[in-house]
Computed example of a mutant assay.
Amino acid sequence: MGQSRSPLGVADLERLAARGWRAAEEEPLGDWLLRAAGGFTGRANTALVAGDPGRPLPEAVDAVAGWYAARGLRPGAQLAGVRSRPADAAFAAAGWPRDEDVLVLTAPLVPGAPDGVPVELAPTPDDGWLATSGHLGRADAGTVRAVLTRAPRVVFAAVREAPAPAPPVAVARGVVTDDWLGVTAVTVAAAHRRRGLASALVAALTRWGAGEGAQWVYLQVTASNEAARALYRRSGFVEHHRYHYRWAPS
């Protein structure tokens, strides 16, 4: 993958990524987007802070807190890029602690060459896929499946060492929104790491994404995940921006 700069700015890329990981309930707060999905993942259960909330920032913080409290969820906010700093300061002033940085990486989409690792692609995740991804322990299966499949062009990649229903040893999810491929949920079982399985999954998803008309690819990785960051850097991804979550005091 090349080193060309992404054609989307921070807010537009975050809004596009939100369309690829849809919550069950979404509601605008000015330019911000309130999202709830039974507590499954921060991305689907925080306010996407991008643009003007249409009211003073302290009032916007209170509105976010009330919206999530009414749904029995811990209020949270996703704050991306330098333009979110004033809002970030308002959440910090209200006592909301922050999580670590998450890096959003992008690259022009170049289909990866097959490398001999057989990667299965399926339109829905089976129970083995969900078990390997680690998502099942975070919400009920119905909520997890709904969030993962709530997109018109989505695929679930898996590497298995035995035929299904044996659980995969590595999984990933791909979603195409407009002309962007989003790669999410890349997970390799601990006993099978350092075998190139993550690279094989990403390559298979880029081939699928190219067939769906995607021209760019994005993914997210936590700042502390040095191994994954090194892998993606070798694959040509560059940092587009960072975001972090803030959560209301528990």
Rank of each mutant, 00 (worst) to 15 (best):
Q3S: 13
P7Y: 06
G9L: 02
D12H: 07
L13N: 00
L13P: 01
A18V: 03
A18L: 09
R19V: 01
E27C: 01
L29K: 09
D31S: 10
L33S: 14
F40V: 00
G42N: 11
R43F: 00
A44R: 00
T46E: 07
T46Q: 06
V49S: 10
D52I: 09
G54F: 03
R55K: 03
L57S: 05
L57M: 08
L57N: 04
P58E: 15
E59F: 02
E59D: 15
A60D: 06
D62A: 12
A63V: 00
A65F: 06
G66A: 14
A69P: 01
A69N: 01
A70D: 03
R71G: 02
L73P: 10
R74Y: 07
R74N: 04
R74K: 11
A77P: 05
R83N: 12
R85T: 00
P86N: 05
A90H: 03
F91Y: 11
A92L: 09
W96Q: 11
W96N: 09
R98C: 09
V102G: 01
L103S: 01
L105A: 04
L105D: 04
P108L: 05
P114G: 06
G116P: 03
P118V: 08
P118D: 13
V119Y: 11
P123M: 05
D126L: 01
A131K: 09
G134K: 14
L136P: 05
L136C: 10
G137Q: 09
A139K: 01
A139D: 07
D140K: 04
G142Y: 09
R145E: 12
R145P: 05
A146N: 07
F156G: 04
A157N: 08
A158C: 09
A164N: 10
A164V: 07
P167D: 14
P168M: 02
V169W: 05
A170F: 08
A170T: 04
R173W: 01
G174R: 00
V176M: 09
T177F: 05
D179S: 05
D179R: 06
L181C: 02
G182T: 03
G182A: 12
T184E: 11
A185I: 00
T187Y: 11
V188Y: 03
A189G: 10
A190K: 14
A191N: 11
H192A: 15
H192M: 12
R193G: 06
R193Q: 15
R195D: 14
S199F: 04
V202D: 06
A203F: 09
A203H: 15
T206L: 08
R207Q: 11
G209Q: 11
A210V: 06
E212Q: 15
G213Y: 13
W216T: 02
T222W: 09
T222F: 10
A223N: 05
N225Q: 09
E226Y: 11
A227L: 15
A230I: 05
Y232E: 14
R233D: 15
G236M: 15
G236T: 14
G236Y: 13
F237M: 12
V238G: 15
Y243T: 04
W247G: 12
